[in-house]
Write a protein that binds this DNA or RNA. Sequence first.
DNA 1: TGTTGGAAAATTTTT
DNA 2: TTTTCCAACA
Length: 759
Amino acid sequence: MTGRPLETLLRDLNEKQRLAVEHGEGPLLIVAGAGTGKTATLAHRVAYLIAQGSDPSRILLLTFTRRAAAEMLRRVDSLLRHLGSVERDESRPTSAAPLPLRQASNRVWGGTFHAVATRLLRLHGRAIGLDPSFTILDRSDAEDLLGVLRTELGLAKSDRRFPLKSTCMDIYSRCINAREPVEEAVENYFPWCRDDVGDLRKLFSLYVDRKGTQGVLDYDDLLLYWHGLLSDARAGAAVRRRFDWVLVDEYQDTNALQAEILQMLTPDGKGLTVVGDDAQAIYSFRAATVRNILDFPARFPSTTIVTLEQNYRSTQPLLRATNAVIAETSERYAKELWSARGGGTRPQLVICQDEDEQTEALIRQVLEHREAGLALRRQAVLFRASHHSLALELELARRNIPFRKYGGLRFVETAHVKDLLTFLRLAENPRDLMAGTRVLMLLPGVGPKKARALMDRLGSRVVSSERMHPEPAASDRESAAAVARAEAPAGPEAEDESEAPESAEALRAVDTRGESSPWSAWRACPPPSAAAAAHWRDLVELMSLIGGRRPGDLASQIHQVRLFYAPLLERLYDNARARLLDLQQLEYLAARFNDRARFLAELALDPPSYSEDFAGPPLLDEDFLILSTMHSAKGLEWDVVYVIHAADGNIPSDLATGRADEIEEERRLFYVALTRAKDWLYVFYPLRYYSYPRSFSDVHGYAQLTRFLPPHVQSLFDVRQAGGPATADDASRAGQPGKASTEGQVTLEDIRRRLKAFF
DNA sequence: TGTTGGAAAATTTTT
DNA sequence: TTTTCCAACA
């Protein structure tokens, strides 16, 4: 490419950003403070690589959410588009970029670790004996499976109380993601389960087995098997060969397993770029460790570190305050953020008598800003826990102020949506026990027992049909073929389309012979109960259709399920009308997808959130106030930010003050919230708050102002009483406390065996 | 199977 | 307070 268009690309960057964008192949760590143009830098780097002639389909861009991936690729696209037009203007043909620059961003591999893992496993899984038609258990399915096994092992009935299934899941998940043995994880994070370690091991081992026989993967498996794929000599090499460049966003929120995956993907760090801010590490509850970013240079000795400190988001008075908050942290990459933006008002600390006054003052302030011309959607209310916004939501609804909440109840977690999706999942994978059980129990007169019996019949049929077609434990010849296919020089899109249906084919092929279709096992059964008689035949027909060779397009499959499910829904749940509308919504949503497996995976890995519940009728201009948990606010920015419930017990959360590092994380979370603001920042501090553990009617007494705002930090705020103007008296009052191996062939069995040895 | 009551435990953030 | 688990019953 000629020099000038590249110059155009780099023009808007500052010196440091430019350094990062133009950096060559060596491992690169970009330490990017809040608001320092991290996303822009990463997007520029991707665009730069493409403009220089890198093949976009050989670039892997790992982000934290799908939303982040989409945003990043949108920016890459717009940069390239701009570049293209510059060239046209100068009527200079592109020499170094063989592909049309437009649409190049579509070819980049972008997504979360989990989503990318899913894609790679569908492509290469066979090489380690993984049937690519696996379905994904979401968190609650995985918990339910653990619950079943917990009962099966007789752990539920013991005289001592065994940990709840959700706790079991947490422990299991931490072991996998942090790569810690059970004892260690339990000792450090779940000490009250110390006596149950032996039984937990048994439980986890069985859990691994069952997922295997059912062809299901939970979230952790996606990463674990990606890791396994990379440990396999052949498949690992094939996966490594796919990518020239690997870029990772939000590196501070990756866990040990993910760090290992990266290292196996680029053993010497060649082509590896990670971006993150240790000051914004807030996902340790998901086993993320800030050590990854702190130790990156040690892991990849030739690392270049670029630190971005110029903040483009906030005004200087806001930065002074946020810098002071984070300065208390002990170990960090030292950064002093500064802004070229002049002027601006100081942040405000608003002291309220109680939650009602907080709500009142907040809404007044929001409306005031809107009067002054700031749309609601440029203002956001942030809080520690999802339920902290409840009172506010009710009041907003009452006053007809539209809002949208992020991080609340999710659409796909509502029972009826889940039910419907479960039909599809069962059609996709008849071995999926949790899916089958859920579907069958919808029938009147069918409980766990009968459901289990019917699933066993189905399962035996599937297994026996597989014996006729040796499927798992693929022969060398077969896995070699799979690798060869995956490496065919087509774009990733084309491959995915051709691969996924083929895997599902394996199961459905049996259907042509009619008798051996898995569903024929059900066809032969009498209705499981008298009450279910009316539905049984229809269910068998439905599953034979959507689980057969010609299921029809996705929307029509959902339509078929709806026809069957609607009467059951009306029997099972109240509020049937609204629920049926949701299902219709889902059918529309599905029209955008043609591949069922991908649809299910996307919904499981990044479910859309559900917000209409309490929101008032949408205004004409579709303006709405943003409500978000602090976690979900990561990476976003607004002109005005309101942080509510900023009192000890909520920030830091009562539940996270056990250990010093937990308090540090709460501080970073608070910091993330504060640094979302561009021009105005309000921190609301209710003196009285209601504390959940005791009771809703029990006033917890005078709250202690969050320990993250000691006097010298408070002095950077304007302190005022919610009722009136700020006074020196208020200021003083606020300060007062009240109260692997990388060699040789690896099979799925190997991974499981190793895993079980682990337990 | 499906419902009910009582006792005990957990209580946040989310791929 | 709410959720979850379990045992006893219809």
